[in-house]
């Protein structure tokens, strides 16, 4: 009897593993379980963070809600998995999450060696540095001899090393696993400098004892295009991920917002008609309904709306979009989506 149950357990385990190993069709899986599993950060205000009521908010969170709206017509059909910088790629490639929307920098190694595909860029960031104003430092080239606090498992560790090596300056790197400990160590004076992506500095500065006593240096020492990521080897799912973002950017360019989208449904403008699915079968071609993009705009908003709501000038982060690289290409920025046709 004992033997038989052991064999039974082995067979059952085998079946489970075969099923999870053979899931190459993510869209079918997601439709089957009724929600998108989205990997986010453990708490980065403006990008992915839990508010006081326990709801996830942020620009990365809105992207995942957009995917849910495109697939199910319901922006709430999404579940969030908070991941550390270290865990995130393993969680994605093992299938624990369907999409990773966690302020992740697009680099060549990640794109080519980790079995990942970047679906686009939803925030153009760059690494910056913050110092206590009392040090009297005004630019990064004065930082010779500094000790620097940062996170492990991110590109920031590499960029800061490169920057100091390039400029032949000495430094000491103190790398923590979680952002909260980095902030605590910096606040206690363990380090002279806190470095991470500039958007991250703006967010973490709010957690310091006296945010006003710290200065963000003007230099941006790296390019950090942040964007959503999916597994390699499922082109159908990759298309949905990429075009969810493109839909949001195109909608802003065409002036379609969550408020006017209902009225735009009868628009004669062929571009808008294709975007909202009243003309053509763009949604059906990628395995969704034709109203996929209309659902995203209606329930989540276009790119500009999510930007202003989460990280823009009127939020605590105060990342002014005007004149920055994150403005639309028509305003001199880099936000540019291929046309929907």
């Amino acid at each position: 009897m004992k033997l038989r149950s052991a064999m039974g357990a082995l067979t059952a385990l085998g079946l489970v593993m075969t099923v999870s190993a053979a899931s190459a069709d993510t869209l079918a899986d997601v439709k089957g379980k009724g929600s998108v599993q989205c990997g986010v950060s453990q708490g980065l205000p403006g990008f992915s963070n839990k508010d006081d009521a326990g709801n996830w908010t942020g620009i990365d969170v809105d992207y995942c809600r957009g995917m849910a709206a495109a697939i199910f017509g319901d922006a709430q059909a999404v579940k969030f998995t908070p991941l550390s910088a270290k865990e995130r790629f393993t969680a994605l490639s093992s299938g624990e999450v369907d999409v990773l929307s966690r302020n992740t920098t697009w680099t060549m190694t990640r794109d080519t060696q980790l079995g990942l595909n970047f679906a686009g860029v939803n925030y153009y960031d760059g690494q910056g540095m913050m110092v206590p104003t009392s040090l009297g430092v005004t630019n990064a080239l004065e930082l010779d001899g500094a000790s620097i606090c940062t996170n492990t498992g991110t590109t920031t560790e590499l960029n800061i090393t490169d920057f100091f090596r390039t400029n032949s300056m000495s430094f000491e790197l103190v790398a923590f696993e979680k952002a909260d400990e980095v902030v605590a160590a910096y606040d206690s004076g363990r380090c002279d400098v806190y470095t991470t992506d500039k958007s991250g500095i703006a967010a973490q500065r709010l957690k310091l004892a006296d945010p006003a006593a710290h200065t963000i240096l003007p230099e941006t020492i790296s390019k950090e295009p942040l964007g959503p990521v999916v597994r390699q080897g499922d082109d159908g799912w990759f298309n949905i991920a990429r075009w969810t973002l493109n839909c949001m950017i195109n909608a802003e360019e065409m002036g379609v917002t969550s408020e006017n989208v209902a009225g735009m449904m009868n628009s004669d403008n062929p571009g808008i008609a294709r975007l909202l699915g009243t003309e053509g079968t763009f949604g059906e071609n990628i395995g969704l309904s034709n109203g996929w993009c209309a659902s995203i705009i209606e329930q989540v908003g276009n790119y500009g709306e999510t930007y202003e709501a989460n990280v823009g000038a009127n939020t605590p982060l105060k990342l002014d979009r005007k004149g920055s690289v994150n403005a639309l290409w028509t305003d001199g920025g880099l936000m540019y989506a291929p046309p929907l046709r």
Binding site: F89, T152, G153, T154, A175, F176, E181
Partner: peptide, 17 residues
């Protein structure tokens, strides 16, 4: 957790990513 570079931090952490 406190930035001491042991094997989990530098190897199973940074090197892994």
């Amino acid at each position: 957790a406190i930035a001491y570079p042991d094997i989990v931090s530098v190897f199973a952490g940074t090197s892994l990513t």
